[in-house]
Nucleic acid binder design. Structure first.
Length: 873
RNA sequence: GCGGACAUGGCGAAACUGGUAGACGCAAGGGACUUAAAAUCCCUCGGUAGUAAUACUGUGCGGGUUCGAGUCCCGCUGUCCGCACCA
């Protein structure tokens, strides 16, 4: 029996150095083996890694190491999402330059990641703030500009008053900035836009093909893109009022046209403005709406208000029927046509509006269980299924049929020499505004010339580098107030001109880093086509669900844009996507209600109840709810502390063991100790196996049985782990490892101080090697040490995955559970090949079955081959 | 409000395509070793009754389909997530 404990710190350092020295994880693009690209979302260099990173990167590393063992040429790179606001905030707070702060953080975090023993190819490391990276991004911006993928337009944008910058729609969460949490205001600015909405249909349709993505993420993207099929209908103004003769509205419910009671226009609608020119009251109303529109939160709470313009339109199916035209605060100018027809009986918003302004509410859809002659909506609109009523020629039709009928008829009608209505598909997705009024981002490579207009920076002048000498003592954009940086000359006419001082949204940086990793050394081009097309799409991408829309949708668009200008050959960047859960922890508060860190408290049990007290003075601490680890609740665990005291393997093992990877995992001290215990146990186990010596004359029949049992356990484990690793079910792999370890330990205990045969020892060694192979992707350092302990001179990191012998695990006899009326009553052991007659006879001769039958014949015997028998009495 | 996911012992969870519910881990209890502790090893561990064999019961609640339901269908409750005047 071995007594020396496994020293994780020493062993881990040793193997990390050895892997490094041998450049084991350096990936060669020209390696002829089949390619496998596994990638975890790269981190923002905030200063230190957190447990979320540990979980994310451990999962990716398991896949990388496993695929390497399976004979793939694995690309597993790492980089830094290095531009962004926090660097500027730090610059303001500490008077350090954003670059200095960022690179210092990168150095720290790189060391932390290295201490985890990740099998990364560090030769390919990129930082998005490096000119050698953003130079290519600027190049692609120019390519996109040339290809018509970019727009510069004045638009109402989301303005974050704390970060003093613009946000994309996707970056506004519940009316607040995604990073600052400030209430977002609406402002009108001239901005650069990526025309992602040109790809709305395609991005939507291609979701169907992303079979290895979580359904949840696909659904979120589908909802975000928001495709809707509807009808654009033009209503004739009663007379040529306000110099217009018609109003075009958009609707997805043309079937309810006979329930229309008003038209509503957005306050920014051209016709609203036109009428307001001669109507001061309307002008005032529009002004009020605009003011209201600055804070998103107010919009959400605002009551529906409107203003009757006095205009009237005629109903397309009844020239004698006219409807009033309102300007209403709840109509959005940038969706559809900025105008709607209101059908109060079947739409909540229209109902609210009609109630407020005492407009008619006419029921036109009758629910299936109601009588259309008498039914009428009460104090709530009805938007469910049903058949049309009070709707002339539509009466009795289903909603779908009625829609078709309306479309068919209105397409034939004509107004001002055009069909009254045309089918139209609308999307919720807007263009991606990428201008940010910040310093620490990729400069947008254009020059504004008074004479020539907006001129791209010539490609040979790239990169447009950020100036180093900037100040952060006042709010606003340091680039804009830099004394010289923005002053340049026009590339076209040579006259004095001004650089664009906005930088790009940092989501642009992360929209193509996975592409750059395939050849990060290339200087003249963003990509090398033969290389990038070999590696992409990423086979397995792993990251947080929080990027379900932002990063993943942008990347899908960006890849298509890159394809259009010839930098890549594929549409979709990520073939397989996995979104992992968070790391959560209990929270603690002292008597004053202040948050207390886990390190400051001690857990004990009193009368069977878990309690906590302060280590310093023993005062009781309240155990609170389990929450996402956060600095504010002080329930974080520092990965450095864990790796320092338990070792990287313990941290990795724990991250994989307790919960399914897509679910949150609860960090507990007990569990981490359990993981540490298993490492010691495994080390002892392997030591004992390594020491086994054959005894003389130890060959007997019982030993032969044991050999088969051991080998079956080992080979079965390999097969199960293979299946589970392919599906990223790490928690099950952990269970299989425990099971095999338990089986080997039990076997050692049985044979303790007894004679053992060489065959038995061989089986034990084989099983131990399999066990080491199983844990190697998860606990690579321990696996190397154990591997060496068994006498191997090579490394397990270079070894092939064991080949399981499937014939071994095929049992000759199988145990069939026997049910009587669906309840399990007995087992029988029969030959695998046994036919149904044999099984039936065996079942009927069972005492419990005889007792249940009481001499009668069974009603039925269901035999499910290899599974179960059910006797129905 | 709309859309979606989930619900299994004291806890984290497993259970393939409808086929033995609770693998594996944690906690707890008992025991061995030890002067003692730690570490380690062994045993018990959904509930009720029983010394036990065993029986009954049990996967949020109420129904249904089926020889058989944690798994499928319908209705409800709760929790979490996404979207939110998108016509």
């Amino acid at each position: 029996m071995r007594t020396e404990r496994y020293n994780a710190r020493e062993v881990e350092r040793k193997w990390q150095a050895t892997w490094d020295e041998k450049e084991l994880f350096r990936t060669r693009n020209e390696d002829p083996k089949p390619k496998y690209y596994v990638l975890e979302m790269f981190p923002y260099p905030s200063g230190r890694i957190h447990m979320g990173h540990v979980r994310n990167y451990t999962m990716g590393d398991v896949v990388a190491r496993y695929k390497r063992a399976r004979g793939f040429n694995v690309l597993h790179p790492m980089g830094w999402d290095a531009f962004g606001m926090p660097a500027e905030n730090a610059a303001m707070a500490n008077k350090t330059h954003p670059a200095k702060w960022t690179y210092a953080n990168i150095a720290t975090m790189r060391n932390q990641l290295k201490s985890m023993g990740l099998s990364l190819d560090w030769h390919r490391e990129v930082a998005t703030c490096d000119p050698s990276y953003y130079k290519h991004q600027q190049r692609m911006f120019l390519d996109f500009l040339g290809a018509g993928l970019i727009d510069r337009k004045t638009a109402r944008v989301n303005w974050d008053p704390i970060d003093k910058t613009v946000l994309a729609n996707e970056q506004v969460i519940e009316g607040r900035g995604w990073r600052s949490g400030a209430l977002v205001e609406q402002r009108k600015l001239t901005q650069w836009f990526f025309k992602i909405s040109d790809y709305a249909q395609e991005l939507n349709d291609a979701l169907d093909g992303l079979e290895r993505w979580p359904e949840k993420v696909r659904l979120m993207q589908r909802n975000w893109i928001g495709r809707s099929e509807g009808l654009s209908v033009r209503f004739a103004l009663q007379t040529n009022q306000a110099a217009k003769s018609e109003i075009e509205i958009y609707t997805t419910r043309p079937d309810t046209l006979f329930g229309a009671s008003f038209i509503a226009l957005a306050p920014e609608h051209p016709l609203s403005k036109k009428v307001a020119e001669s109507n001061p009251d309307l002008l005032a109303f529009i002004e009020e709406c605009r003011k209201m529109g600055t804070a998103q939160e107010l919009i959400d709470k605002a009551e529906k208000t409107g203003f009757d313009t006095g205009l009237r339109v005629t109903h397309p199916f009844d020239p004698s029927w006219t409807l009033p035209v309102y300007v209403a605060n709840f109509i959005l100018m940038d969706y559809g046509t900025g105008a709607i027809f209101g059908c109060p009986a079947h739409d909540q918003r229209d109902f609210d509006f009609a109630t407020a302004y005492k407009l008619p509410i006419k029921t036109v859809v009758c629910p299936p269980d109601q009588d259309p002659k008498t039914y009428s909506v009460g104090d709530a609109p009805y938007d469910g299924e049903g058949k049309l009523c009070n709707s002339s020629f539509l009466d009795g039709l289903t909603i779908e049929a009625a829609k078709e009928e309306v479309v068919k008829r209105l397409e034939k009608e004509s107004l001002n020499n055009k069909p009254v209505a045309t089918r139209k598909i609308n999307f919720r997705l807007r263009d991606w505004g990428i201008s940010r009024q910040r310093y620490w981002g990729c400069p947008i490579p254009v020059i504004h010339c008074e004479v020539c207009g907006t001129i791209p920076v010539p490609i040979q002048d790239l990169p447009v580098k950020l100036p180093d000498d900037v100040t952060f003592d006042v709010p606003g954009n340091p680039l804009d107030r830099h004394p010289t940086w923005k002053h340049t000359s026009c590339p076209q006419c040579g006259k004095a001109a001004r650089r664009e001082t906005d930088t790009m949204d940092t989501f642009v940086d992360s929209s193509w880093y996975f592409v750059r990793f395939t050849n990060p050394w290339l200087e003249d081009h963003p990509t090398e086509r033969s290389v990038v097309d070999g590696w992409l799409p990423v086979n397995q991408y792993i990251g947080g669900i929080e990027h379900a829309i932002l990063h993943l949708l942008y990347s899908r668009f960006f890849t298509r844009a890159m394809k259009k200008v010839g930098h890549v050959g594929m549409d979709e960047p990520f073939d397989g996507l996995f979104t992992q859960g968070m790391v959560v922890h209990e929270t603690y508060r002292d008597k004053e209600g202040q948050w207390v860190t886990p390190a400051e408290i001690e857990i004990y049990t009193n009368d069977g109840e878990r309690r906590a007290k302060l280590i310093s003075n023993g005062t009781p601490v309240e155990i609170g709810s389990i929450e996402k680890m956060s600095k504010s609740k002080r329930n974080t665990i520092d990965p450095d502390d864990i790796i320092g005291s338990y070792g990287a393997d313990t941290a990795r093992w724990f991250m994989l063991s307790d919960s399914p990877p897509e679910r949150d995992v609860i960090w507990t001290e007990e569990s981490i100790q359990g993981a540490a215990r298993f490492i010691q146990r495994l080390w002892r186990l392997v030591g004992e196996v390594a020491d086994l010596q054959p005894s003389e004359n130890a060959h007997d029949a019982a030993a032969e049985d044991a050999v088969i049992t051991i080998r079956k356990a080992a080979h079965r484990s390999i097969i199960r782990v293979e299946e589970d690793l392919e599906r990223l079910r790490f928690n099950r792999c952990v269970a299989h490892a425990y099971e095999l370890a338990n089986a080997l330990q039990a076997e050692l205990t049985v044979k303790k101080d007894k004679k053992v045969s060489p065959q038995w020892i061989a089986a034990m060694r084989e099983a131990s090697e399999f066990l080491i192979a199983i844990i190697a992707p998860m606990m690579p350092h321990l696996a190397e040490e154990c591997w060496a302990e068994l006498g191997h001179r090579s490394m397990i990191a270079e070894a092939s995955w064991p080949k399981a012998d499937r014939s071994l695990i095929l049992e000759n006899d199988i145990v069939l559970p026997i049910q009587i009326n669906g309840k399990k009553r007995a087992d029988i052991t029969v030959a695998r090949q046994a036919d149904n007659v044999t099984i039936e006879q065996a079942v009927l001769s069972l005492d419990s079955v005889k007792a249940a039958l009481d001499g009668k014949a069974p009603k039925k015997i269901v035999i499910v081959p290899q599974r179960i028998v059910n006797v129905v009495v």
